[in-house]
């Protein structure tokens, strides 16, 4: 579908209304749970929201009266504010919880916190936690819709959605693209969610990184696994760099920062192996000079990194709107 930015204000709202659909599942926990029509429909809707973000009056009433709680056990400025802005643009009330500063440190468990919050009847709970499966666990224990904003190494589905949206808008399609996901795949929830979603949308995915940072059995995910950057990004349309935690570089998984940069850090020289029109992505925050050179990250001709942040709000609006549409439908049925 054509980008929505060219339409005028009423057109955008009409487009949003037309494209909003109730997501069949109550929660948004992983990209594995989506089928291709759902994923495409979410992207179409997100695309319409991009248009909304570009105009002066950005606020809608889709989520008016609804409450979204951000429950971030791991700090994240980017994702948390992205969700908050998305919810506010849809007219929701938002609350931010940083459990590190509250009773969670006094021995209260994740579940206790969730049950307490649940009693306050939020409509949507956005959760980030350092343990894989934390969002699934919460979803079993609360009545509201749960959105996974990152659980351990497992998943970060809204990141994958925004990455797909970014690609679709920048390159016009995802189908058929060769996407190389490079770096610390082992510890990356972004990589796992992207492998599932980009493959669903028809991309060819390669995973590139040192053997110590590659998950066991990754070749069974339908991807090509490469340990050298040259073969890994050769002819790639998109190079998606992953963040490498500094503590993993000091002899634990790789010998040193400089050795890592030498073999897996993205600079202009390595990028020359990729397709001439290659685009570079990074979920942020970047370790400049470690996994990516500033010259590459900041080159507007090739870097989609700023665009990813922009698309984050639209992608999250799409998820929120479809979950709310499901809530509306469920409530309407109760009222009958």
């Amino acid at each position: 579908m054509p980008p929505a930015a060219d339409h005028d204000a009423t057109d955008i709202e009409r487009l949003i209304r037309e494209r909003t659909f109730p997501l069949p599942q109550r929660h948004f926990l992983s990209t594995d749970g989506l089928n291709r029509p759902q994923a495409e429909a979410l992207l179409d809707l997100a695309d319409a929201f991009v248009g909304l973000s570009l105009r002066g009056e950005k606020k809608l009433a889709t989520l008016r009266g609804r409450t979204m709680v951000n429950l971030f056990f791991e700090s994240s400025t980017r994702t948390q504010s992205s969700f908050e802005i998305a919810a506010k643009r849809l007219g929701a009330d938002t609350v931010n919880m940083a459990p590190r500063n509250s009773s969670i440190t006094k021995g209260e468990t994740l579940i206790d916190t969730a049950v307490t919050l649940n009693a306050m009847k939020p409509d949507i709970l956005v959760v980030r936690h350092s343990a894989s499966g934390a969002a699934d666990l919460l979803a079993q224990k609360v009545d509201c819709s749960v959105i996974n904003a990152g659980d351990g190494w497992h998943g970060h589905p809204t990141q994958a959605l925004l990455d797909a949206l970014t690609l679709r808008r920048a390159l016009g399609r995802v189908e058929g693209l060769v996407v190389a996901i490079c770096g610390d795949v082992l510890h990356s929830r972004v990589a796992r969610s992207n492998v599932a979603l980009l493959q669903l949308l028809g991309a060819q995915v390669r995973l590139v990184g040192p053997p110590t940072l590659m998950p066991a059995g990754a070749e069974q995910w339908g991807v090509a696994v490469h340990h050298q950057m040259k073969s890994g990004i050769e002819g790639a349309d998109v190079v998606m760099m992953l963040r490498l935690q500094l503590e993993r570089m000091d002899g634990a998984f790789v010998p040193s920062t400089r050795e890592y940069f030498r073999y897996w850090g993205l600079d202009a020289e390595k990028l020359a192996w990729a397709s001439p029109k290659v685009k570079v992505m990074h979920p942020g925050p970047m370790n400049r000079g470690v996994e990516i050179e500033s010259g590459v990250a900041d080159d507007p001709e090739i870097s989609l990194i700023q665009s990813q942040v922009e698309m984050g709000v639209a992608a999250r609006m799409a998820v929120l709107a479809t979950l709310a549409a499901r809530l509306d439908g469920a409530e309407a049925r109760c009222g009958e």
Partner: peptide, 15 residues
């Protein structure tokens, strides 16, 4: 246990 399944779940695993 290390393997494709544990990797997909994102769980720390041992061979």
């Amino acid at each position: 246990t290390e393997g494709e399944f544990a990797a997909r779940l994102g769980l720390p695993s041992a061979p």
